[in-house]
Amino acid sequence: MRWMWIDQIVEVERGQRLVAIKNVSLAEDVVHDHFPTQPAPNGEQLDALPVMPASLLIEGMAQTAGILVGHANDFAEKVILAKINKARFTCDVFPGQTVRFEARIDRMDESGASATGQVSAYDHARQQYHDVGTVELMFSHIDQNMTGLEFPEENFVFTDNFKTLLRAAELI
């Protein structure tokens, strides 16, 4: 499995806003066994209801916003998720739906950035998007912050997996 929680970058406004999508599939192991159901009135234990774990929606937003923050400096900085200020979800995301992550930079300087993300999901049966939640994140440019600590020269954040995604969106 690859640690990729977005499939495609669909909109970019450099240094300001980036939108990515993820298609949630029943073939993904993570959607299974997440929430076991209560036994039915007849005592039958039904299978777990497959849903996209909210923690991985946060990760998807972190990848979306992280790319936005990295792109602002042409991926020269090692952008590390440093803090989840807030994450609030009002409904679940189910297999078959397409998650839309829209990240905006609130503040950014040499040390890092703060970003706010809106998560929504497209229900293909209803042919419409609905709100799923909000995530507020902080990123650290670690070379600028952890003074005295040495990090590898190469950018280990934006690795080959990400480069494929970035190349497809013509960001690199």
Binding site: A82, K83, N85, D106, S111, S114, M138, S140, N145, M146
Partner: peptide, 22 residues
Amino acid sequence: ESIDFLDIVFRLEKAFDIKIAQ
């Protein structure tokens, strides 16, 4: 923790409409 200091700086900038250098 260390990242909170950056968070506080960003929030102070917004709350008071000031610019705080690194």
